[in-house]
Design a protein around this nucleic acid. Structure first.
Lengths: 221, 221
DNA sequence: TATATAAGTTAGATTAACCTAACAAATAAT
DNA sequence: ATTATTTGTTAGGTTAATCTAACTTATATA
């Protein structure tokens, strides 16, 4: 059985492996920063995780999840995203409130609970942020995502997920009334600074920064 | 903020205070036994709780919740029972499966979560075991107590309290191994003298007098 | 009342998760 | 290639929650 903390390390490693797309390994400092602990602490924990064969790692080397570690990580991510969906859909939590609570709920131990929760929610494929919810067998529904910044003038898309999950960004989205599924059209692109003018649903076009456009995953339609 | 463990001590103390009806205080060994730790461990923790003014207690003396400690305990009990209700009603957990998971869920920190959960469940007054769910303000719905003599043949109930507190009656209860919480079923009623045949837990049915049945408060389940 | 038993405390140790400070290795910059 | 910087490790310490063993106080019994 994994401790609360061990679970957090595995989940962090998994998330980092998603972030760093093509290189799934992470470094000690990266881990420590992500988890808000000191590097020395991460080193200690990584030794323990290695002992339990959840990560492969050697002194001064890169950290990688083993198959078993990945499986555990996915199970936690699954719980996290199912709980987020529950909070959002059933308990009227807003987009930016779900994460913090799901962060606690993801550690509840009960196989039955997770599966029943999934059933109760009607086997959702994506959480409120548009991220895929792993299935019980570990598979993840794939979604053809592009960044908003990659679209051409005139293209129409649907908001699929956020790349940046910071509260500030989520609150900004809320202010713009953009949610998962919102329809956007790229009206204009300013090559000078990468900013672009977009139409949200049927509203008046408005300008957003390149940083913004690089933080939003969309699906072309 | 209270730690997971501190919360458990407060809840235990509250539960023990319910159990020992008219004397709400508990002893170190009692606490330790209830929580599955050694008495020495309980002593240490009680000192800490005293420091935080959650219990009143002096060396070799009895342990009692302060007002603040009681409030915290009730808040945890509230969460526990709301979660049990959720598991039972929404996720098809069985009666005996809910406790273990609720034991974990009760420690999730989020005022909003509890209140929204309560709303989602339609402000239930009792949990699946028939125990009252404290309201947000700490009040407890009184359980509708009936006299055993008011029940119909076939009805199932839980012993809630005694009306007669005489030693003779209490000793008789002890002999029958009936305590608060014992489950009884009315098997038969004899109109002639008001005596009735009851099944105590899963034992063989036995006969008791009308006087007996009029001295025991029960809760229908 | 004296003593035996039960109840409770203290002291010292352990483990998990964290820290700081000092050091070592790897990588980047001149 | 040498140095500077970044990255990672080690050693030693802290805190919360637990333990065992030895001790003390309170209560029950003869």
């Amino acid at each position: 059985m994994l401790s609360y903390t061990e679970e957090n390390y595995l989940k962090a490693l998994l998330k980092l492996s998603f972030q760093n797309e093509d290189k799934p390994e992470a470094g000690t400092n990266e881990m420590a920063a992500y988890l808000g602990v000191k590097p020395a602490t991460a080193t200690d924990m990584l030794k323990k995780l290695k002992e339990k064969e959840l990560v492969t790692y050697k002194k001064y080397g890169k950290i990688l999840l083993t198959e078993s570690g990945r499986k555990s990580g996915i199970a936690i991510l699954r719980k996290h995203r199912l709980w987020e969906t529950f909070l959002y859909e059933k308990l009227d939590f807003s987009w930016d409130e779900v994460h913090e609570v799901a962060e606690q709920l993801e550690h509840i131990q009960s196989a039955k609970l997770v599966d029943k929760l999934e059933e109760f929610l009607n086997f959702p494929e994506f959480d409120p942020h548009g991220d895929p919810i792993p299935k019980a067998n570990g598979e993840m529904p794939e979604l053809a995502k592009s960044l908003l910044s990659e679209l051409q003038v005139g293209e129409l898309c649907r908001v699929a997920a956020v790349k940046d999950t910071s509260t500030l960004f989520l609150q900004y989205l809320e202010k713009l009334s953009i949610t998962i599924g919102s329809q956007l059209r790229v009206i204009d692109v300013v090559p000078f600074d990468g900013s672009l003018s977009i139409q949200i649903e049927t509203e008046e076009p408005r300008s957003v920064s390149m940083k913004f456009a690089e933080s939003l995953f969309v699906q072309r339609i």
